[in-house]
Design a protein around this nucleic acid. Sequence first.
RNA 1: GCCGCUGUGGUGAAAUUGGUAUACACGCAAGACUUAAAAUCUUGUGCUCUCAAAAAGCGUGUGGGUUCGACCCCCGCCAGCGGCACCA
Length: 841
Amino acid sequence: MENFIDIEKKWQKFWEENPNLYHAIDNDKSKTKKYVLVEFPYPSGSGLHIGHTFSFTGADVYARLKRMQGFNVMFPMGWDAFGLPTENYAIKTKQKPQKVTKDNTDMFRRQMKALAFSFDWAREVNTTDPKYYKWTQWIFIQLYNKGLAYKQEMPINWCPSCKIGLANEEVVNGHCERCGSEVERRTISQWVVKITEYADKLIEGLKDTDFIEKVKQAQINWIGKSDGAKIRFKLSPNSASILSSSRPQTSSSDDSGRKIDASSDHELEVFTTRPDTLFGATFMVIAPEHELVSRLMDNEEIKKYVVNARSKSDMERTELAKDKTGVFSGLYAINPVNGKEIPIWISDFVLASYGTGAIMSVPAHDERDYDFAKKFGLEIVPVIEPEGGWDFEKAPYTDVDNGKIINSEPINGLTPAAAFEKMLTWIKEKGIGEKTSSYHLRDWIFSRQHYWGEPIPMIYCEEHGWQPVPENQLPIVLPEVEQYEPTDNGESPLSTISNWVDTVCPVCGKKARRETDTMPNWAGSDWYFLRYIDPDNDTEIASQEKMKYWMPVDVYVGGDEHNTLHLLYSRFIYKFLYDLGVMPKENPEPYYKRLSHGVILGPDNQRMSKSRGNVIVPEDVSTKYGVDVVRMYLMFMGPFDSTMAWNENTLMGVKRFLDRLQNYFDKQSKQINNENASNAKVDVIINKLIKKVTEDTDNFKYNTAIAKMMEALNELNALGETYIGGKYLKDIVKMLAPFAPYSTEEEWSKIKNDKDEISVHIAKWPVADETYLVEDKMRVAIAINGKVRDEIEIESENQNNQSEIISAAKETEKIKSWLSGKSIVKEIYVPGKMVNLVVRD
RNA sequence: GCCGCUGUGGUGAAAUUGGUAUACACGCAAGACUUAAAAUCUUGUGCUCUCAAAAAGCGUGUGGGUUCGACCCCCGCCAGCGGCACCA
């Protein structure tokens, strides 16, 4: 007999020579389409890891099932290949990133083919291919044209040792991921994408999807919508005159037209979720970055505080969260509802990036305001009191569901909820504010000062400002050069390539400069699922007709770590393109179902990592035991979405099962020509198996599907020398095929006849014959007071004959002894399941 | 602190969603084959009581509740995991 290595070689070659087995056919109306997507990998130098193997196998099993069930399945694969690790590796080994990427994707592709994933390789995409990123750049231009991309001074994470700007994801606990030195803040002019414009649409759109609750919640939390009001506080006359005498020297913003701060010299605008507590506002606090503060820098104390606060990293600010700091601004505002003059403080616990960068402080009813008031001896005025009173000396009262409004002349006695509504109308009538919402979601910083990314297709002209590259000049190809190390000044390495940077203005034709920043990693992975639909299209992102056929993605398999950022960015870009009219109007959402796969831990129950030395390399295990064993084990070890530890003993159990099955097939093959040699027991075993395996596989419950196959084999073996016939033998091979593609293909080649498909992987999935699912006899449990004491066997056709079954139940020896001396007060019969007799002494 | 999830044998886990708890697999024990070991096969395996068996009792983190009947539904608590976190 051939060993598994020969078998794998043989069939890999066969599949390579027959790629049409897994081809998805565009616009095939004769079949129902099924778009099965799994997150494409970043092709790192260390090859496919066990997590990839796990999630890809899970998606592959599903794709194979659907294909065999007669769907027109698209199951594509590609490479999310821009990114820092490649750039760093290239710098270290003095190779071109293009070359490193090529080597890595070649390795990944080879490993994937060895693992028998049924990808449609004709649709392979690569985010670093100019033909691909032409469209990534095109999307950016559309964003710019619609006013959703703007340039702004933004603080970034700066590594002083690498001399490079770091993305948030490259900062680990306040330190540079690469060199470990502490990250500083620096302000750099950056491209920003207005995802916040779509915040509401991204929340509402979730109802058009079938994501699991956990994912929907993650998205909603990340967007973090709060309903409340904007309220304008007039400054006291004195304060207003102080300010008007010190206008800011220059406006810090350049051309974005965005104003963070809507306040004028006479007003200070705040956002609050608690307008019901407005009468309790006894002071105000503004962020050190607030526009007003820049006009108060003559005061040494304020200047010192502000300079210090601005130099703090986000880390430091939040770490010191408990201990409030602050300084009095010298200014006063008027509480619009009671005319009270209240002080304005400056403190870094107020975030410039949320709301208006200024708050009204109600210390009696907010933890942070309370801490601040206690520390600086500010007034605390309660405006809500619960029944039974509250000791405001000890703590603030923050419960919104209970209590009555006090100390608030026109609204006294209302509940906080009623007061909330009342105040919204009131501030509107008085013209001092209006209802609004605020979001945790921030606009998306889109610039990276790295080489290995998509060039941002923008040109700067002295006269005409920022202009998009004309679309017919796309793609702007990343120049291949010798120098792509980071520069000293924090600019992208592209800035040193003068013959690339120097260009002409698309408006006036005069000298102009290209943008030298590149896009973040997310840019290419936002929309890749669209490109699979039409990977070679040169004139459109994808053809309308094809998108109409394939969209939406039916099932999207990915990791929990992408449930917020990637999924949100991706939905945003899709919705933007949808509003642009580029997407089919039937599909406002890109993904119908989202499935998150679990995590495979090392044998020590710890996350796999090189430093722990607990890494399992798929290629090592598959050369030792065979690909089928590895695939099947991964699917058997537990539910597809849970965290599980690698255990080689359990893997051996799967291997034994496959070996036993092989023996069974070898014995059975003697009678292969006898299509229907079978008996009643076999009919039941196989048809039940088909039903269960089909259901479970369809629902990604692979572990129980495999358990059923094991159970069935045990049952068949227990029948001894019974031949089950060719049809059932083929059914078993088919059901196993998605999990164990090699050995089933081998077995299929032995047992198939001329009428059968050339490959088991395009054979027709079996359908259970319902007539065999009903057994003639059933076992009915008999319980006394809910505890099972005995059981009887009944004819299935009699299962609804309640009185007969109950009297039979009372007649068994065991039950009689349980009943003696007791009286039956109630009899319950669950058809075909059980009898419960409720008795009393 | 907030949001989400999970607690079932020695282990990974099942349970038709309110109807016989522990399927399947691992591990362990005993046996068969073998000079021996590995591999393979057979049998047993929740706990207590028992030389053993029968019978009984106890058993799904924990305390209550609803129900003829609860791993499943409701209320409270404990433990663990993941995400967010000075978001006004």
